[in-house]
Write a protein that binds this DNA or RNA. Sequence first.
DNA 1: AGGTTTCTTCTACGGAGTAAAACAAATAGG
DNA 2: CCTATTTGTTTTACTCCGTAGAAGAAACCT
Lengths: 109, 109
Amino acid sequence: MDYLSRTEELLLLAVWKLQDEAYGLAVRRHLSKLLGKEMSVGAVYVPLERLVRNGLLETWESEPTQKRGGRRKRFYRLTPQGMAALNAVKQLQESAWQNLPSLGLNLAS
Amino acid sequence: MDYLSRTEELLLLAVWKLQDEAYGLAVRRHLSKLLGKEMSVGAVYVPLERLVRNGLLETWESEPTQKRGGRRKRFYRLTPQGMAALNAVKQLQESAWQNLPSLGLNLAS
DNA sequence: AGGTTTCTTCTACGGAGTAAAACAAATAGG
DNA sequence: CCTATTTGTTTTACTCCGTAGAAGAAACCT
């Protein structure tokens, strides 16, 4: 389609929103809340890696934190390409929703 | 994902927009223009039929018109379910794009 | 009639989306 | 300590979506 899929868009936005706390499980929590439905682990990590492979995200590993179970995390951040893709899809969205005739009143077809 | 995919959303919006002229090839022309790229025939008809199967569109056949090559068309119209799905995805979209931190200025992390 | 145009149906395939198990590594607490 | 628990990532496998393109169908025109 040449445009971001919905999933990709939501993932990129989640990474953006979470800023310096954008790692796999945090993204999952964020989106699960937004969608009102628990997402599976794979539904997050797999497409996230695809976005990295396609150059829309960049990623790196951090040191472990000092919290219960806290271990090495893999963080994500938008690339310029990622931002551009978000802008493109937003514009698409806006044009697609413009000038919709009001339903119901089919006068004189 | 429980929400419309981008493709489904664009197809539903095209059907809505085209009103009583919403048939396969017209939808294709409309979307090709919106996307700035010629879509294949199958990229339109196949998902359209899926939307019918899932109850988001209803469809029926018309009589041929009196135009060169004009033949029987299969028209589409949104069902209430289809409208509801569009509303849902629009709200999702709006919440997903809200409260995004401005990039660049990572002050005092 | 034959060719052209408009439109739909069919088919086949690659890749996205998802669930779930397996794996890994840190901490807490007795 | 040393084991259970928590937090997190990687891997795998499967289903269904998205897409291209050929094939089929039926009208019109000259």
